[in-house]
Amino acid sequence: MPPPSHVRGEEPKPPTHWPLSIVVFLLFWFLFGAIAMYYSSQVTTRWRNGDVAGAQQASKSALIVNLIGIGVGLLFWILVIAAGS
């Protein structure tokens, strides 16, 4: 069994942000959630292919798209609630 990646001097696998992507898809704004899920899936794919920089970029992109989706979704729901009052 090979030693853990941090012992070999390799960087750890970047986070995929899957749970956040699913929450954004279901609760905030489905388009942003779907795009974030795409980037989340790319993290593991690129990592397995040895593309560390690509995996890190995909992870960062997934997080950014998720945060934008949360912001847009919250703004949308605030406007809907305010319009209904």
Rank of each mutant, 00 (worst) to 15 (best):
P2T: 01
S5K: 11
H6I: 09
R8M: 08
E10A: 12
E10T: 12
E10Y: 14
K13A: 13
K13H: 06
P15D: 10
P15H: 08
H17F: 15
W18I: 08
W18R: 08
P19M: 07
S21F: 00
I22M: 13
I22N: 02
V23W: 06
V23N: 03
V24E: 10
L27N: 04
L27E: 07
F28Y: 15
F28A: 13
F30E: 06
F30D: 06
F32L: 00
G33W: 02
I35Q: 01
I35W: 04
M37K: 01
M37H: 02
M37P: 01
Y39M: 10
S41F: 15
V43Y: 04
T45S: 07
W47T: 07
W47P: 05
N49W: 04
G50R: 05
G50A: 09
G50W: 06
G50N: 05
G54T: 07
A55V: 03
A55E: 02
Q56A: 03
Q57H: 13
S59N: 06
S61K: 08
A62I: 00
L63R: 15
I64P: 01
V65D: 02
N66D: 14
L67P: 03
I68K: 00
I68M: 08
I68F: 11
G69Y: 02
G73Y: 09
L74W: 07
L75M: 10
I78P: 05
V80F: 07
A82C: 11
S85P: 09
